[in-house]
Structures are given as C-alpha cells and as structure tokens.
Write a protein that binds this DNA or RNA. Structure first.
Lengths: 187, 187
DNA sequence: CTTTAGATACCGACTGTTTGGTATCTTTCA
DNA sequence: TGAAAGATACCAAACAGTCGGTATCTAAAG
C-alpha cells in the first residue's frame, strides 16, 4: 500500500486502494478499527483525498459492503450456471461458494467483514434485503425444509470460520461440503 | 432506571444495572453505541460511579460477555440433564437452547450481542475458547458429521434471527427445531 | 449505646486524544 | 485556462479515563 507516491492521475486506482484498505482493516482488526485516518494512512492518501472520493465515512463502508455483496452475487450466479440439476441449484451454489472460499483462503477474505456488516443496523438492512432477494427468486427450486437446513449450516460455517483463527474448532471442510451437497440431491 | 436517588447504597444493584444497560445498548443499537457515557446515562450513574465498579470500558464489556456465556452454559447443561439418550445429547441441547430462545423472545435477547462479540478480536478469543471447550468435552457422544451439520445449522439460525427484524426471511422455527432434533436421533 | 475512624460507594468537573468532517490552497492533466 | 485530484491545516464533538471531593456504611473502641 506504500506505493501511490508519484502516481498522478490515477483516481480510479486510488479509489480502489481506499476500498481495499478499508476492507482489510475491517477484517483484520474489526469494524471499529476502520477510522478515516487509519484508512488514509494505509492507502497513502490524506483525508482530503479520501473525502474527494467518498462523501462520508459511511459512504466508504457502504461501498465496501456493496462490492462484497456484488462479488458474492456473481460467484453464486456463476456456480449456478454450471449446475444442470434444477432442484436445489441455488442451495448447492450457496454451499459451494461459501465453503470454497473458506477452503481456498486460509483466512476467509470476507467472513469477518460480512459478519461485521450484520452488527450495524444500517448495513444489516442491506444484507437482509440481499438475502431475501435470493430466497425469493429461487423459491421454485429451493423452497424445502432440508435445503433450508443445508443453507443454514453453510451460514454456520461462516461463523466457524471466524473462530478458526482464535483456536476455535474447524470442521473438515471438504467432507462437510460433500455431505451438504449430497443432502441437496437426495429427495 | 431513574430510581437510585435516595436508596441506601446498593453497590450490587448498581453493578447489575450497569451490566444490563450495556447489554441492552449493544443489542439494540450495536456494539458501537456502547460508550461509557451512554451506559452511565442509561443506568442513572455518573462516570465516576461506573469506573468505580469496572476498571475500564473493556472490563465492562468483558463482564457482559462472560455473563452471557455463563447463562448459555447453564441453559445447555440444564437441557442435557433432562435428556436420557446419550448419543447427540449435547447437540440436541444446543439446538433446543438456541431455537427456544429465538422462539420465546420475539427478538432474541442475546443474538445481537453474541454476534457483536465475534467482531472484536479480544471477545472472539473468549468465545472461541468457550466453544472449543464444549466440543471437546462431548466428543464421545457428539463427534459425528451429521451432528456437526445440525450444530452448524443452529448457528445459522442465530444469523437468520439477526436479519429477521430487518425484513429478512425467518424460517418456521418450530418445524426446524423438530427436524434438527430428529436428525440427532436417526443413526 | 455512642463516638469515631477508616473504608466503600459515588459524584461531576476536567484532561488529552481521537473522531468524522470542512475550508482552503496547490498541483496535475486535458 | 479550468476542472479534477489531492495536500494541509483546522474544527467541534465525542471519546475513555482521571481526580479531588463528598456522602454513606461498618466496625471497633470508649
């Protein structure tokens, strides 16, 4: 992040850097550590620079969360596209995306931020809307008690992932993934 | 909370009030709203009074979380005591306590605070240790992939409970509970 | 039963720091 | 030149925490 010194005329890159730094701070040290000053320092930009790109601190955080949700959105959509079986397609994609992220990245890139977003009322509303949209959209293929349990279990894995770095127990992700997917196929 | 004026000094009661107010603030307005001043005002005590009972703000929050975990601990232990079937006993208790709390209280009394505690690294460590202790202790009766999925699903319900108030979808808790418990009985 | 001394419980003004945010100035690019 | 991009300096509010003081309680001595 210490680059940026004599990069003039790269506003898009500065904006990106600010978003990345804010996200990193949030997931490494908690949402409370995301102060305007800390983000600026990490990004090698002054406050004037930050407030040129974002109207307020809240706008910054909103943008970070929006990006996170967009990425999740795209990943799930992509996973669904390669799935020939209609029944439980969304649930499978949800499980796949969630667990693959945790398996690939030693420390999930997004879990902490995602969870953090649930603690602040304003962000919670955004997340709730995003989630409701999905469930509503796939009601035809994924409205089933067992599938719901599978999705809830995937959510639980998010939480377990949070505790992993602090000595919490971590399940066998590969086996878990296989089991959960299997549950979406058996009727 | 506005009483307290001409009571005989009741340190224990003041301490309790401070803890309760801190918890309420956390779950109603997020952990960020738990400022020393806000807690004092809610409790009808001055800052000097608060710092007489708690060495620091962190000590206050730690005490709140410790109480929460102790209560969970006791509830789970109580639920286990009435369960004659050894296999999956801990998992059943975990499901029961989690979902009953959500069903009884329209808005869970503890979910928000519990989740909030996961965002701050220090509190996260405490929770991770608490959780690891339980899993370790009941390894003999509850170490099984299906039981693990059941527990993870219960965790997922915590999260869903958070979103409920903001338009998120809320599952049929009674049915869900029955299904999850059934999963712990079938081998 | 008093008196009294020390401890406990609490108050409220105060401190230095950090917060998000703004106003103004300079540089860079088209 | 003029608009965009960013730096510098500053602000009021809020923050956690401190400190000297006072009211209240407890217990032992007189």
């Amino acid at each position: 992040m210490a680059t940026a010194s004599r990069r003039r005329k790269q506003p898009e890159l500065v904006r990106r850097t600010l978003l990345d730094c804010a996200a990193r701070l949030a997931l490494e040290q908690g949402l409370a550590a995301v102060t305007v000053q800390a983000v600026c320092e990490a990004a090698g930009v002054t406050k004037g620079g930050l407030f040129h790109h974002f109207a307020s601190k809240q706008a910054l955080i909103d943008a970070v969360v929006a990006e996170l949700l967009e990425k999740l959105d795209a990943d799930i959509e992509a996973a669904m596209a390669t799935d020939p079986q209609p029944w439980g397609r969304f649930t499978r994609a949800y499980v796949t995306v969630t667990l693959d992220d945790l398996m690939l990245n030693q420390s999930s890139q997004w879990t902490a931020l995602y969870i953090s977003s649930l603690t602040e009322p304003s962000l919670r509303r955004v997340t709730a809307a995003w989630f409701a949209k999905f469930v509503e959209r796939h009601r035809a293929t994924d409205d089933d008690p067992t599938l719901e349990i599978v999705r809830l279990a995937a959510d639980g894995v998010w939480l377990a992932g949070l505790l992993r770095d602090d000595g919490g127990p971590m399940p066998d992700l590969a086996g878990l993934r296989a089991r959960l997917v299997a549950m979406t196929l058996a009727r």
